[in-house]
Amino acid sequence: MQRITITMDDDLVETLDQLSARRGYHNRSEALRDIVRTALAQEATGDNQQQGFAVLSYVYEHEKRDLASRIVSAQHHHHDLSVATLHVHINHDDCLEIAVLKGQMGEIQHFADDVTSQRGVRHGHLQCLPIDEHTELHHPHHGEHSH
């Protein structure tokens, strides 16, 4: 590990300290490492060929005309990306779905855009976790493994 020195405006340091307190970091270094990792992950998602995982969460009106069937159709069209989906009934009108996805970032982004752009879908959010080029993705039935 290397030690570095940075210079920041007082108001930015204060904001960093507030963020650190809210998130429970023990020191500024932990906060800055996490911020840099997040920025690098975000940058890597711009590479359409980058492999990784993602979590797509969205709220939708289940009574909206044919919306549920359009979402299911999009999921089936991109079945190779889907690892798991969780469906939660929020209230009489709204449902929350959380999809865990695996594949190329470009395909994942396309799927997320396809789902969240549907009329009646609200609060869509895609969180990407690119994996580095040296990490091998697990493929079912390709040898034994333990977790």
Rank of each mutant, 00 (worst) to 15 (best):
Y60H: 13
H77N: 05
L12M: 12
V36I: 00
L126M: 10
I71E: 10
G46D: 15
I71T: 01
T85G: 05
R33G: 02
D80W: 00
Q118P: 01
E61F: 04
R23G: 04
R28N: 03
R33Y: 05
T85S: 05
Y58I: 14
F53M: 06
A74N: 13
T116M: 02
L67V: 15
H145D: 09
D113F: 15
I4D: 05
A68C: 10
A74I: 15
D47R: 12
D34G: 00
H145R: 08
I90E: 13
G120V: 09
D34A: 11
D94T: 04
A39W: 14
E107M: 01
D10A: 00
P130M: 06
L16C: 02
L12Y: 03
H125R: 11
S82L: 10
I90T: 14
V115W: 03
D113R: 11
V83L: 07
H89I: 13
R37W: 02
V115Q: 05
L12D: 09
A112K: 08
L137A: 14
M8A: 10
Q104S: 04
A54H: 14
V13R: 09
E136V: 12
L96E: 10
H147Y: 02
L56S: 03
L19E: 04
E43T: 15
H89S: 04
L86M: 02
F111S: 10
A21E: 15
G120K: 02
T38Q: 12
G120W: 10
L96F: 07
H139Q: 15
D93N: 11
T38H: 11
E30N: 03
H78P: 05
L86T: 08
T85Q: 10
L19V: 15
Q51R: 10
P140H: 13
D80R: 12
S69M: 11
L101T: 06
H141P: 00
H123T: 14
H138P: 12
S29Q: 01
M1R: 14
L96V: 08
Q127K: 07
L129S: 05
G46S: 13
A39N: 05
D132W: 07
G24D: 04
K102H: 07
